[in-house]
């Protein structure tokens, strides 16, 4: 599968990563190369093998339903570029 500039522009927008047309050109080539490399996996015959989401033979670790975290709004807001009255403050987003 090859990548074109339009696809790169779309996914960079979806990922909120700004790209210039020149970068899109370069990235189309690079991403195309990565995909071509991964596509080698198509050579393996996986007929009758269930899709795999994990390679470890382990069950999902679970926890008990107890409150053991939170309670420190100050720490949570510490890295916020802007905050007020305990809230994160962001540019207006209205529908």
């Amino acid at each position: 599968m090859s990548f074109d500039k339009t696809t790169v522009a779309r996914i960079s927008r979806l990922a909120r990563i700004a790209t210039t047309p020149a970068e899109q050109e370069r990235l189309a080539g690079e991403l195309g190369g990565i995909l071509a490399w991964v596509e080698q996996l198509d050579e393996v015959d996986v007929a009758g093998v269930a899709p795999m989401t994990s390679v470890v033979e382990m069950n999902l670790k679970a926890r008990e339903d107890v409150v053991s975290d939170g309670g420190d709004a100050e720490a949570i807001l510490k890295n916020a570029p802007s905050s007020a009255h305990g809230f994160f403050v962001v540019p207006k987003v209205v529908e």
């Binding site: 926890r63 975290d69 309670g71 709004a73 009255h85 305990g86």
Partner: peptide
């Protein structure tokens, strides 16, 4: 995460790093 689900608490007081 282990943060509480209680409704109506002070903003961001029930938030874990997750």
């Amino acid at each position: 995460s282990g943060a509480s689900t209680e409704f109506g608490s002070e903003p961001n007081s029930q938030v874990s790093t997750i």
